[in-house]
Design a protein around this nucleic acid. Structure first.
Length: 564
RNA sequence: GCCCCCGUAGCUCAAAUGGAUAGAGCAUUUGGUUGCGGACCAAAAGGUUGCAGGUUCAAGUCCUGCCGGGGGUACCA
C-alpha cells in the first residue's frame, strides 16, 4: 500500500484526459494540478473532483460535457464502483462495495503498518524539538512542543520519511552559569554557610534540592575552591541532573529522542569556527568595534552580532545566539546531511526565523531545507484565573505535576488536538475534573470494547482468526466503518504535507464513532448457527478496526488499552 | 510604530495548494439496552464564519482597510 486511493484516482483522471485527447474528443491543454478530495457528503460519493469546472474554459466545453467525456475515457479500476457527472460539473466517485469488504483482510495483513505511505521516499528529515533550557524542569509550554514534535515525527515516519528526533541541549549560555551559581548558593546554604544568592538566579525549589544533593555527594569540597572555579565545575553537574530529569519526564509522556545534541560541543568541536569561516569566505561577515557581525540583504538590520569582546564568554560558552544557530544549521544540513531540518519553536521565537533563513542562504544552502513550525503559546488557567509562570522565579506548573494529576494520554490528546497556529487555554480544573469526559477516553473505549468482544468470542470457544467470506459485510454500518478505516493513509498524507499532526485526533474520534455505530447495528458474535459465516467475517472486521484504532493512538503517542 | 498568529454554534475547537447544504465534542431538549462493555447510540435545536470592500463561475479559505485578542520587535534566554 504505497499510493493512496486519492492519488490513484488522480492518476486515473490524468490517464482519462490523455485517452480523450488521443481519441480526438479533447483539445490539447495545459493541465493544472489535479485535485481530488474526499467528498464531504455521502450523496456525493467517496471522492470528488472539481477539475472540470476549472478546465471547461480551456477545453471549450461546458463543465458537464467535459465531466461526461472524462468519465467515458476513465480506465477501469477494481476499487471504483461508479463515477458520475453532477451539476455543475463535478465528478463523484463511489468505491466498489465488494472491494471495500475485501480490504478488511488487506488491513489485517498490514497490521500496525497499515496507513503507511511512501510520499517521503526515504528522504532524511530531522525534527528538533523541545530543546528547553536545562536549567529547570519541563513546563506545560514545552510539553506542547514535545507532543507536537513527536506527533509530527511519527506522521512523517508513516509517510515514508527517514526521521530523527533530536533534543538540543542549550548548555553553553550565560543562563547555565547563572544556574550553576544558584545551585552553588543553595549548596553552601545546605552546609550552613551564608552564601549570597545571585541576582536573577533560579528560585525554584528544585534548585534547593540540587544544592542539598550536592552537599551530600561532595561535602565541603567546592567551598574550599575558588568560587568561579566551583561554579564552573558545578554547572555541568547540575545541567546533567536536569537533563536526566527532563529525559525522564518526557519519557513518561511517551516522548523519546534519538539524539541529545549539546551546544557546548559546537565550540569544542570547532563547528562554530568552521561555519564562521564559510560565512567570511562568502562575504557575509564584517568586523568593526572589535566585534564580528553577520550581514545579509534579507535582514532588516544592517548587521547582527556574531561575536563580541564585550561579552567575554568562557571558551565553552556561546558568543551569541546567532553563532549557535549558524553552527547548528551547518551541523544539520551539511555535516550530517539531512534533506530537511524541522524546527519546532514557540511563537515567541518567530522573530528569529528570518535570521536563520538568511544564515542558510549565506552558507550557500537552500533556505527551504530549514522548516519552522511555530506554535502559539499555552496559557494555564485555574479557578478562572490565569496562572503566570516563570522558570526563574520558580513559579510554574511542571509537566511532572500534570503527569501525576491526569496522566500522559489526556495531556497528549489535548495538546495535539489543536493546530499549531492557535493558542491553547489549558484549564487545569477541567483537565482533572472532567478527565472522564475527555475525548481520549472515547477513542480508547472503542479499542477496549473491541478487545472485550474478542475476549467474549474466545470464551465462547471460538477462534478469532479464522478466514471468512468478507462479501457478507454489506451492512451500511459495516461499509461505513471500512470506509473510515481506509481514510487513515490519506490522513497521514495530509498531516505530513501540512506538517499538522492535529488531524490525527479528529480522525481517531471519527473512527471510534464509526465503530460504535457499527456495534449498535450489528451483532458480532452470534449464537445462531445460520450466522456462523457472518460472525467469522465480523470478527475479522472488528480485529481490523482494533488494529487501525491502535495505530492512530500509537501515532499520537498514546496507549491502546485492552481494558479500562 | 513595524512584524507574526488568531477571531467560525452558548462554550471548546475542526474544515483537504478556493468548490456542492460550514462540521464535531460539551452544554440544552427528546428518545433508545430481558444477548458481545451505557465511558455507548439516535434525533432536535443551535451560524450574516469579527466588520467593510475587492478578486473569482465559486471565498471561512486569496487581496486591501478597520475592530478585538495574543506574541515579537535586546550585545535577554
Amino acid at each position: 500500500m504505497t499510493a493512496t486511493i486519492r492519488e490513484q484516482i488522480v492518476n486515473l483522471l490524468i490517464q482519462s484526459i490523455q485517452a480523450a485527447q488521443e481519441a480526438g474528443n479533447l483539445p490539447p491543454m495545459s493541465l493544472p494540478p489535479v485535485i481530488v478530495e474526499r467528498s464531504r457528503r455521502p450523496e456525493h460519493g467517496d471522492y470528488s473532483t472539481s477539475l472540470c469546472l476549472r478546465l471547461a474554459h480551456q477545453a471549450g466545453m461546458s463543465p458537464m460535457d467535459l465531466a461526461r467525456t472524462l468519465i467515458a475515457h476513465l480506465p477501469p479500476a477494481p476499487f471504483i464502483g461508479r463515477a458520475e457527472a453532477v451539476h455543475p460539473g463535478y465528478i463523484n466517485f463511489w468505491l466498489d462495495e465488494g472491494w471495500l469488504a475485501r480490504q478488511v483482510d488487506v488491513i489485517l495483513e498490514a497490521g500496525e503498518s497499515f496507513g503507511n505511505i511512501s510520499v517521503g521516499q526515504g528522504q532524511r528529515v530531522q525534527v528538533e524539538f523541545v530543546s528547553a533550557n536545562p536549567t529547570g524542569p519541563i513546563t506545560i509550554g514545552s510539553a506542547r512542543n514535545a507532543v507536537l514534535g513527536d506527533g509530527l515525527a511519527s506522521v512523517l515516519q508513516a509517510a515514508g520519511y527517514q526521521v530523527e528526533r533530536e533534543y538540543y541541549v542549550n548548555d553553553a549560555g550565560s543562563q547555565v552559569r547563572k544556574f550553576g551559581e544558584s545551585v552553588f548558593a543553595r549548596y553552601a546554604q545546605a552546609l550552613g554557610e551564608n552564601a549570597p544568592f545571585p541576582e536573577d538566579g533560579y528560585h525554584g525549589h528544585y534548585v534547593v534540592e540540587l544544592g542539598e544533593q550536592l552537599a551530600t555527594e561532595a561535602g565541603r569540597r567546592y567551598l574550599e575552591m575558588d568560587r568561579r572555579e566551583a561554579v564552573r565545575a558545578i554547572a555541568p553537574w547540575a545541567v546533567d541532573r536536569m537533563v536526566k530529569r527532563i529525559r525522564q519526564d518526557l519519557a513518561d509522556l511517551g516522548v523519546h529522542f534519538d539524539v541529545w545534541r549539546h551546544e557546548r560541543h559546537f565550540y569544542e568541536e570547532g563547528l562554530f569556527d568552521l561555519a564562521l569561516n564559510v560565512l567570511r569566505e562568502r562575504g557575509y561577515v564584517v568586523e568593526y568595534d572589535d566585534a564580528i557581525w553577520f550581514r545579509h540583504p534579507d535582514l532588516e538590520k544592517d548587521a547582527v552580532l556574531i561575536r563580541s569582546p564585550k561579552v567575554v564568554p568562557e571558551p565553552s560558552e556561546r558568543p551569541t545566539y546567532l553563532a549557535s544557530d549558524v553552527a547548528y544549521l551547518w551541523d544539520k544540513l551539511v555535516r550530517r546531511g539531512f534533506d530537511r531540518a524541522i524546527y519546532i519553536w514557540g511563537a515567541d521565537h518567530h522573530g528569529d526565523v528570518p535570521r536563520v533563513r538568511a544564515a542558510a542562504k549565506a552558507l550557500g544552502l537552500d533556505p527551504d531545507r530549514a522548516v519552522f513550525i511555530l506554535y502559539q503559546l499555552v496559557t494555564l488557567w485555574r479557578g478562572g484565573e490565569e496562572v503566570r509562570m516563570s522558570k526563574r522565579s520558580g513559579e510554574f506548573i511542571t509537566l511532572r505535576d500534570l503527569l501525576d494529576e491526569v496522566g500522559p494520554d489526556p495531556i497528549r490528546f489535548m495538546l495535539i488536538s489543536r493546530t499549531a497556529d492557535a493558542p491553547i487555554d489549558f484549564d487545569l480544573d477541567l483537565a482533572v475534573e472532567q478527565s472522564e469526559r475527555n475525548p481520549v477516553y472515547y477513542v480508547q473505549y472503542a479499542h477496549a470494547r473491541i478487545a472485550s468482544i474478542l475476549r467474549y468470542a474466545q470464551e465462547q470457544g471460538r477462534r478469532i482468526d479464522e478466514p471468512a467470506d468478507l462479501s457478507l459485510l454489506r451492512h451500511l454500518s459495516e461499509l461505513a466503518l471500512i470506509r473510515k478505516m481506509l481514510e487513515l493513509p490519506e490522513v497521514i498524507e495530509q498531516a505530513a504535507a501540512k506538517l499538522s499532526p492535529h488531524f490525527l485526533p479528529y480522525y481517531a474520534q471519527e473512527l471510534a464513532t464509526a465503530f460504535h455505530a457499527f456495534y449498535r447495528d450489528c451483532r458480532v458474535v452470534s449464537s445462531d448457527p445460520a450466522e456462523e459465516e457472518l460472525t467469522r467475517a465480523r470478527l475479522r472486521l472488528v480485529r481490523a478496526a482494533k488494529t487501525v484504532l491502535a495505530r492512530v493512538l500509537h501515532l499520537m503517542g498514546m496507549s491502546a488499552p485492552e481494558r479500562m
